[in-house]
């Protein structure tokens, strides 16, 4: 594209770049100037928020809190992935089992993860263990359901071929079922990623003595609004970065999938489309 414009291609590049960035830049600048002489106690100037943010990153308080929270998120999500994928492969492939457990799964997954939080936290107290448990419990359903869907979507010609060649079961699961279901599994994990952050935040708001949610809610209790804002902005950055990281990993794992020509890929017409369908 840039080549065709000739020797001034860099102008084109800058314009392209600017179309993506001008609005966020303008909005942040507006926030900065409008809030600069803010008299409202609850809406401190952006400069003050940034100062608190940099200060608490510098002294390690925020990073420590983030490390605690994200370790819980990572562990809980990993547990959910292992459980969701393995049970999903089993249930998805075994049609007798699937038809039997489906109503139970539909019933259990309808119970919102956030509603389980107070029940678990009062029973097992606060600390990493219960937090990880509620995160895993909330995140397992999207992954389980997507894995089941992914396995069900495999063309019967593929499974028939595998059977005709008498592939050993372990090989069949690893080389046929799992790769075929991976696009759907990744879609499930992406949903669970959002769920895990929400559950992490809610569980730390409702109880706990460490983590990002606690950093924010202690700002409320000590009437330090700039701490509340700084923590919220920081969670936003973490959420954004984890999503970006996820998309990069997904592109790498699913490179073969995204390369499939449009006509043969039944569900997805473009990468952007795929992301939107999942949201």
């Amino acid at each position: 594209m840039a080549r065709r414009i000739g020797k001034h291609w860099w102008i084109y590049e800058i314009v392209q770049f600017a179309t993506y960035f001008w609005l966020p830049v303008v909005l942040v600048a507006l926030w900065w100037f409008i809030s600069s002489d803010s008299q409202s106690f609850f809406m401190p100037p952006l400069s003050e928020i940034v100062q608190t943010l940099l200060n608490d990153i510098g002294n390690g308080e925020l990073l420590e809190a983030a490390a605690f929270s994200m370790r819980n998120v990572g562990t809980g999500l990993s547990a959910a992935i292992v459980l969701g994928v393995s049970f999903g492969l089993l249930i998805g492939y075994n049609s007798v089992l699937r038809s039997a457990v489906w109503p139970l799964i539909a019933f259990l997954r309808a119970i919102p993860g956030v509603a389980i939080i107070p029940i678990v936290l009062v029973a097992f107290g606060v600390g990493p263990g219960p937090q990880i448990f509620v995160i895993a419990l909330g995140c397992v359903w999207p992954i389980l359901l997507n894995t089941i869907d992914g396995v069900r979507g495999i063309q019967s010609s593929i499974t028939d071929t595998a059977r005709a060649y008498r592939l050993p079961r372990a090989l069949f699961i690893r080389q046929v079922l799992l790769p075929a279901a991976t696009p759907q599994i990744m879609a499930g994990i992406r949903i669970s990623l959002a769920v895990s952050l929400t559950i992490m935040v809610v569980s730390e708001f409702s109880a706990g003595n460490q983590g990002l949610g606690v950093y924010i809610s202690s700002g409320v209790q000590s009437f330090a609004p700039s701490q509340v804002w700084a923590g919220t902005v920081f969670i936003g950055l973490i959420g954004y970065l984890t999503n970006v990281a996820f998309v990069l990993i997904e592109r790498r794992i699913l490179a073969w999938y995204f390369e499939i020509p449009r006509r043969t890929a039944t569900k997805i017409t473009s990468i952007a489309g795929a992301e939107n369908e999942r949201a």
Binding site: T19, Y20, L23, P24, V201, I216, G219, G239, Y240, N243
Partner: peptide, 26 residues
């Protein structure tokens, strides 16, 4: 669409419930 893409990506990946304390204050 291009101009708002970054904002929207940021907003959708934000765990929105984390805004609770701010709105609780306001």
């Amino acid at each position: 669409e291009r101009s708002t893409r970054l904002l929207i990506d940021f907003g959708r990946s934000f765990p929105q419930i984390a805004l609770l304390p701010i709105f609780l204050l306001i």
